[in-house]
Nucleic acid binder design. Structure first.
Length: 341
DNA sequence: CACATGAACCTGGTTAATAG
DNA sequence: CTATTAACCAGGTTCATGTG
């Protein structure tokens, strides 16, 4: 059907970055563009129309297939629009270097906001903006330390301590399992536990995992203190892209304590019993305790995960049977050969 | 101060008892 | 017989307190 016989199509137009909309009807792209430019006092030459929604350009054949009352943006030559993406990136750029006025405005908006979604977005935003990530000492950021003992004077120091503390509790669990090991093997079990204790102590209880000041290989975060969820134990990545910076503010610090170091091969259900069994059944062989050490206390078997990515179901994973004992060397020699892969 | 310890807490899965 | 419920256990963490 010829365009002239059709009912005109209606649109809502606006200029780039303008909130003001006005209605325009027309039977062709050209017509709508001309009316729009007239209204906005823009040159028709070089200008075009695109959908506000996703930025696709409105061309002749596309004209009739878009729904009535679609929102359009008028672009002059050189201007671009990618739809919501453009809105978002403009929004984000405002926070590149947030200034007081912007924060004040957000507070104002939040104070009389009723809709829960908008309330949450604004609150999250203010929360994010309130972070003082760069500050490190108690003097620089007293609120961060609220509720912590006075002996903690630096953020890195405290987080290092909290990591050490978590890992020490793993060690304690290993020690206390001695009581369920058969009496014949108990002595050897405790000896192995002590070996682990020594090694762990030398490693500073792996407190560096949470310490942003630690050197690159030793920490789980960026030098700024950002931690990313490593995803459920049986998945390679975190689909939700969870991340947190406990160095930012007090709330983040508290929230970070709900993140877990999850043993991929479970400590209590699997690793510790396997260690006990290996010792009980050693039958002259030497238990490769460092393998178990790796499983219990190091990133070899630990994932840092957001609580939502912490699956508490049984993992159904076992230790590698080939790595439980030191490789057999010539039976005569006492000294074990270096571990092979 | 560094570390050990145990209680308390949270969440979620498993299982056994109980109600319908 | 199935559906709930409750108890228990495992995954974790923090906190207060004690000890060398």
């Amino acid at each position: 059907m010829l365009a002239v016989f059709r009912k005109p199509k209606t649109f809502k137009l606006r200029a780039l970055h303008s909130q003001e909309k006005f209605g325009v009807a027309g039977r062709s792209c050209q017509e709508v563009l001309q009316k729009g430019c007239l209204h906005l006092q823009l040159p028709v030459a070089g200008s075009r129309l695109c959908l506000y929604e996703d930025g696709t350009e409105l061309t002749g054949d596309y004209f009739w297939s878009v729904p009535d009352n679609s929102e359009l943006v008028v672009l002059t030559s050189g201007q671009t629009w990618q739809g919501y993406v453009s809105d978002l990136s403009r929004f984000l750029s405002a926070f590149h270097k947030p200034h007081a006025g912007l924060i004040q405005a957000a507070r104002q908006l939040l104070s009389d906001e009723q809709a829960p979604l908008r309330q949450k977005l604004l609150a999250d935003l203010l929360h994010t903006v309130s972070e003082n990530i760069a500050a490190e000492t108690r003097d620089e950021d007293p609120p961060w330390f609220e509720g912590l003992e006075s002996r903690f004077q630096s953020k890195s120091g405290y987080l290092r301590y909290s990591c050490e503390s978590r890992i020490r509790s793993y060690l304690r669990e290993v020690h206390s399992y001695a009581s369920v090991v058969g009496v014949e093997a108990r002595g050897e079990y405790s000896r192995v536990a002590d070996l682990m204790c020594h090694k762990l102590r030398a490693a500073g209880y792996n407190g560096s995992y949470f310490d942003r000041g630690a050197k690159a290989g030793g920490r789980l975060c960026t030098p700024e203190g950002w931690f990313c969820c490593q995803g459920p134990f049986d998945v390679d990545t975190c689909a939700s892209k969870h991340s947190i910076n406990p160095y930012g503010n007090r709330e983040s610090r508290v929230l970070f304590s709900t993140w877990n170091l999850d043993h991929i091969i479970e400590k209590k259900r699997t690793v510790v019993p396997a260690l006990a069994e290996a010792i009980t059944e050693r039958d002259g062989r030497e238990v490769a305790w460092e393998y178990f050490y790796g499983l219990l206390f190091t990133l070899e078997n630990l994932k840092l995960v957001h609580i939502a990515c912490h699956k508490k179901t049984t993992h159904r994973l076992g230790c590698d049977p080939r790595r439980i004992y030191q490789p057999q060397t010539k039976p005569k020699r006492r000294r074990p050969a270096r571990k092979r892969r």
